[in-house]
Computed example of a mutant assay.
Amino acid sequence: MRLEARTTVSRTALVAAPFGAIAATLLICAVLVAWAGAPVGRAYLLLLEGGFGSRFAWSETLTRATPLMLTGLAVAVAFRTRLFNIGAEGQLYLGALAAVAVGGQVDGAAALPNGLLFGLMVAAGMLAGALLLLVPALLKLRLGVDEVVTTLLLNFIVLLGVSMMLDGPMKDPLAMGWPQSVALVPELELTRLLERSRVHSGLLIAVALAVLLWAVNRFTVFGLQMRAVGANARAAAFAGMPVARVTLLAAMLSGALAGLAGVVEVAGRTGYLTLDISPGYGYTGVVIAMLAGLHPMGVIAASVFVAGVLVGADGMSRAVGVPNAIADVIVAVALLAMLVATMLTRYRVRLDRIGRAA
Rank of each mutant, 00 (worst) to 15 (best):
A236G: 08
E189R: 15
D167T: 14
A13H: 04
P67A: 09
A101Q: 08
L166I: 12
L132F: 09
F156D: 10
G177N: 10
A96K: 01
S163Y: 05
T7Y: 08
G271C: 07
T25P: 00
M121T: 13
D167W: 11
G255W: 10
A228M: 10
L160N: 13
A101K: 09
I86A: 11
G72Y: 11
M1A: 12
A239H: 11
R42T: 15
I300R: 05
R11E: 12
V306Y: 03
F79P: 08
L141N: 08
L92V: 12
I86M: 12
N155K: 09
Y281V: 02
V102D: 13
F305M: 15
L116S: 08
A244Y: 13
L48Q: 13
V246S: 03
R82A: 15
R64H: 15
F52D: 02
A36C: 15
L310W: 02
L273I: 09
T150Y: 05
G104W: 07
L94G: 06
V162G: 07
A228Y: 10
A43N: 03
R55F: 10
V309M: 09
R346M: 06
G298S: 06
Y272C: 06
V333A: 02
L94S: 07
V322N: 10
T247G: 11
G230Y: 06
P67F: 05
A334C: 15
G355L: 03
T66P: 00
L260T: 01
L139T: 08
A258N: 04
L45Q: 09
M297W: 03
G95I: 01
R348K: 14
W214K: 13
R2L: 04
T12A: 11
A175N: 06
G104N: 09
V306W: 03
L141S: 05
G223E: 06
T7Q: 13
V287W: 05
L344E: 12
I300A: 05
I330G: 00
A206N: 01
A78R: 05
V221E: 03
G282E: 10
T247E: 02
V306E: 00
V199E: 06
L224D: 07
N114F: 14
G262A: 07
R192K: 14
P67Q: 03
V207P: 04
L138Y: 10
G202P: 00
L204W: 14
